[in-house]
Write a protein that binds this DNA or RNA. Structure first.
Length: 440
DNA sequence: TGCTTCACG
DNA sequence: ACGTACGTGAAGCAA
């Protein structure tokens, strides 16, 4: 159907998921998403093939070593067989490791990391998994999905595919292209600009933390953003009661996990795992955090109460998420709903902001008579393709559109909530992997 | 088809 | 005594 998207949006509006504002926002987004899907993004086929060959060679090597160490050939990609080999045949000590719902001991990377010093096979398996994933999901699959003539891949965006208001992307999913690790960047280099064009990437800096700081009106966090500080470093200084200069990378890493915990609806165990510290230490950090960022702690209680009373939570533009389990007698369902109640207004408001920014950006790029096209949206990042001689102009326009998005009339009534500026980082280059900061 | 795992924000 | 961070989509295996 040509207008199934519109139909779904109307449906959501009728069902009170979307306010009138959000409904109109989503309607305006349809033609833009359609353009983005139709334009697609160009792939460097020969680079993908070269990388695939490289990974294949390494995978064969790892495969042989794993068989040798295990003393038997088996399917390394089968978590069941792998679990059998590791914990029965090789008898690796597995006490304290998670079990899967079907009863076998988990072989997830997070579990294997805990025992990587017990046996040399672990690191081989971890590397095998990483490379197999990249090869199968990206290197070998993307070219098959691309247009054989133009070498461009075309995703499909789903406007209402998520419970929070984010977009999702499928066939292929272009929102989970690798970037971490030594191979991630290499893969992004295969996403290239058309001849005579540059790729631009514009991403919001810490948008979710900025949003939660505003929703919670947290004094310290607002101040940190107003002064354009390194928020994770500030957090580390606060919870450790140390001056900024004494903050180590380790402390910043833990503080970063703490800040993510706020967005996700903190749990002691979840935070402890992410920060790689004991549950006891985690508890202490969280207690200290609640004292330092009192506004955040208050907000968390307020939003949980609101969710219980009303049965739903919403973004600043009043996009709703219903949480029927918030009053469940089973505390696990209840707590899960509470985490969603904390997270949705934050993630959803950030998503609303990005959607408005996209429409403004498209409008301003057209008005300035540029040939620039918006190619991808990756939650807090836009990827654009601009003619070489329009690249800098495009950068200025996109920065203005994104940073000043809250001036849009749609935010008129809620503008006072936002007490701090939004910040956008822009990169530019011939491909998605080696974009340079703009301005330098 | 459901489960497990893992890529991204 | 549990099992946990929030939100997605895709690949491969096992039944």
């Amino acid at each position: 159907m040509s207008n199934y998207k519109l139909k779904n949006i109307r449906e959501a509006y009728k069902n009170k998921i979307l306010s009138k504002k959000v409904y109109q926002l989503e309607r305006k987004l349809i033609p833009l998403l359609k353009e983005m899907e139709q334009i697609g993004i160009k792939l460097d086929f020969s680079l993908l093939r070269a990388l695939s060959k490289k990974l294949n060679a390494r995978l064969r090597e790892l495969e042989n070593r794993i068989y040798k160490v295990a003393g038997v050939k088996f399917n390394i990609s089968s978590s069941q067989q792998l679990s059998e080999i590791l914990f029965k045949k090789l008898g690796i000590f597995a006490a304290g490791l998670k079990k899967t719902s079907s009863g076998t001991i988990s072989t997830a990377a997070s579990e294997l990391l805990k025992i990587k010093n017990k046996h040399k096979i672990i690191n081989l398996v971890l590397e095998y998994r990483e490379l197999a994933k990249l090869k199968n999901t990206y290197l070998d699959t993307l070219p098959k999905l691309a247009d054989p003539q133009t070498h461009r891949v075309h995703t499909t965006y789903h406007q209402l595919g998520t419970m929070t208001g984010r977009l999702s992307s499928s066939g292929p999913n272009l929102q989970n292209i690798p970037i971490h690790g030594e191979w991630g960047r290499e893969i992004r280099k295969a996403f290239i600009a058309e001849n005579g064009y540059k790729l631009l990437s514009a991403d919001y800096s810490q948008i979710e933390l900025r949003v939660v700081a505003c929703l919670a009106k947290d004094k310290k966090m607002l101040e940190a953003f107003r002064e354009n500080q390194d928020i994770h470093k500030i957090t580390a200084a606060e919870v450790n009661n140390l001056p900024l200069i004494k903050i180590t990378p380790e402390m910043r890493y833990q503080a970063k996990a703490l800040n993510f915990g706020v967005i996700y609806g903190m749990s002691v165990v979840g935070f402890a795992q992410a920060a790689r510290i004991s549950n006891e230490k985690a508890k202490e950090f969280i207690q200290e955090y609640k004292k330092d960022f009192f506004g955040i702690a208050e907000y968390v209680e307020r939003i949980k109460e609101k969710a219980r009373k009303r049965g739903y939570v919403e973004t600043v533009l009043k996009r709703r998420r219903y949480l029927p389990q918030i009053t469940s007698s089973d505390f696990r369902f209840r707590q899960a709903s509470e985490r969603m109640a904390i997270n949705m207004p934050v993630q959803g408001t950030a998503a609303d902001i990005m959607k408005v920014a996209m429409i403004r950006a498209r409008y301003k790029l057209k008005k300035a008579k540029t040939k620039t096209r918006i190619l991808l949206q990756v939650h807090d990042e836009l990827v654009l393709e601009a003619k070489n001689n329009e690249a800098e102009k495009t950068a200025e326009i996109i920065r203005d559109a994104m940073e000043n998005v809250l001036e849009d009339p749609i935010f008129k009534e809620v503008k006072p909530i936002f007490q701090i500026p939004l910040k956008v980082d822009i990169k530019m280059g011939d491909n998605w992997g080696t974009c340079q900061n703009y301005p330098k």
